[in-house]
Design a protein around this nucleic acid. Structure first.
Lengths: 340, 340
DNA sequence: TTGTACGCGTTATCAA
DNA sequence: TTGATAACGCGTACAA
């Protein structure tokens, strides 16, 4: 195990001090062009490899962000993760990734681990810890599409999304508008969808119905529960034209597949709209109309919000935010073939 | 910005030396039970938070692994990533994740960044850098399903997989067996599929055909190219029963959707088999038979292989591997509804 | 069982 | 423009 080449070695080789070598990296212009070349040459000759951890010890900037995502099964999450990770090219921040959404203690362990590595900020998509608890960690945090009272967040305007969905189904000539979703508290942004959907229906006098159902945590459970929902719809409204707004594209796709398997196609009787505009919506047998989340913008705004907090902390006299900032992004309707 | 609590503070508060505090964490039994309690108490009172980076400076062990994945669009990759990340519970290693598969220089930057953070090992799924170049970084590496001559790797037995696929299609009563795949060099494990498939057909006298096609890098291109393939098949073999072996489940699903959209179901005339057993194969309109990769085992073996190398390095006199270890895992056929 | 002293590789401060 | 020195927080011989 041969020793690493360090600034000390470069300094010795070139006759400069360690300080000058450091300056060569962090403020090159403060070193003579001539000497810059000498140093550059020495780096080549000695085969220097930088050690960012040592730098972290000295200046405290890890340029690492921690991210906790519920799972990678939901296409929406892998999509988000992909976009966030890709911001490396823009901001240079690296990401340590954890997955999990079950156990609060597990999640606390993840966070403590992340803090022990001095990550400069946290991006949280999982739902197990309250924003109150998160805020007490006293580190820059941005959450995405979850309860966010005490922390900064980026969310889609779910209320508008719900209205858009209802509107499309209405314009597709449906007699009854149905929204299936899980039972979650009003504090979660997605709750806005239910409200937006309902209000649209009520103020436009559409027969509508909210079906609250626990969809379960994996495909098998999803399938079973969505089958039940569909059976109930078939029985209840044999003569009507039905518009169904599913909680996300993954679930919309499952419903679509159930119907297509039964009828060989999507009958005129049914219109479907999903949420997220995740890849599965366009890859489905029949491309699914969806209320699209702007995942690229979400990733971008998340990093902006996070870096804003991070940079504020680096100031000599940082002012903590008076109140958490909640960025809300407008959903974009993506019309495809499951509606008119 | 109040200073962090350090061992020095704990030492001062308890009256012990920093060394004893360190021992409390790394070798508790070498400290009196009584004193352990004193220290534990001090940690509480002072609100100590560990700093693993400082520990890294002192002992060199980051417990971080870097991982470079081509993308998160292919379900197979998100699946693998999910399983690898989840090994945290078993091994305690954290993961810094990069995504990309395009540009060699970009990928070199990723690797250098990872090395600068002293990651203890690398897991590579992208294809842009040769294993020769990778091996020259002189750090523990495991690749998954890619060219691997000079580095350790975990691969699925693609040859057997190819034979299994052909066998299932044959037993499903197909007259012609077709395997569509991209044009890649023999050095890539997936090439074995083509060989296994062909050899099975030849030794059993099945009419067969390998269709080499560039599928493109996103869904739109995939769709377009797979449509062309299907059209060609429809024209060429109007009277025959066709078995089609697709390169992965994502592509098999696209083909299935094209057919179902045209016929309302999967006609008896066509049998389809995919590869990977990634989530999409069971979530498809008609659940897709597939040659399954054992993703859980792949993740496990990958970490085993990596940790073997990492631990060897920690020894006083590490012996470098004489030759890279290539772990090969048997694929498991998953029969579903697109074959008999 | 506990303590001393130094090292890990870089940056920040202050001085020249 | 350059340098000397002290951090950063922890681990580890070696000594007691």
């Amino acid at each position: 195990m041969k020793k690493n080449v360090t600034f000390a070695d470069i300094a010795e080789y070139t006759g400069f001090s360690k300080t000058t070598i450091s300056r060569y990296f962090n403020n090159p212009d403060s070193v003579t062009i001539e000497n810059q070349e000498k140093i550059a040459n020495a780096l080549e000759v000695l085969g220097y490899k930088e050690n960012k951890l040592a730098r972290v010890m000295a200046n405290g900037k890890t340029e690492i962000v921690g991210i906790i995502i519920p799972d990678l099964y939901m296409h929406y999450y892998s999509d988000i993760l992909d976009h966030i990770i890709s911001t490396y090219e823009t901001y240079g921040y690296k990401f340590i990734v954890f997955a999990g959404n079950d156990d609060a203690d597990t999640e606390r362990r993840y966070i403590n681990e992340l803090l022990a590595y001095k990550t400069e900020g946290l991006i949280i998509l999982s739902h197990t810890l309250s924003s109150k608890e998160l805020s007490e960690y006293n580190i820059p945090i941005v959450t995405i599409e979850r309860e966010d009272e005490y922390v900064c967040s980026v969310n889609t305007d779910n209320y508008t999304g719900g209205m858009q969905a209802a509107d499309v189904l209405a314009k597709s000539g449906c007699d009854v508008l149905i929204h299936a979703n899980s039972d979650f508290p009003e504090s979660i942004p997605a709750y806005g969808r239910i409200v937006g959907f309902s209000e649209f229906c009520e103020s436009n006098n559409f027969e509508h119905r909210i079906m609250i159902k626990d969809f379960g945590g994996n495909f098998e459970e999803n399938l079973e529960n969505i089958k039940k929902i569909f059976e109930e719809i078939e029985e209840t409204y044999p003569e009507k034209k039905i518009g169904i707004f599913m909680p996300n594209d993954t679930h919309a796709n499952i419903l679509l597949n159930i119907i297509v398997k039964k009828y060989g196609t999507l009958p005129e009787k049914y219109k479907i709209i999903g949420f997220d505009n995740s890849p599965v919506s366009k890859e489905a047998v029949i491309p699914i109309t969806t209320v699209g989340q702007q995942v690229d913008k979400i990733a971008e705004e998340t990093m902006n919000l996070l870096l804003m907090q991070i940079n504020e902390r680096k100031k000599r006299r940082p002012k903590p935010l008076e109140a958490p900032v909640h960025k809300v992004l407008t959903p974009v309707l993506v019309r495809r073939e499951t509606t008119n």
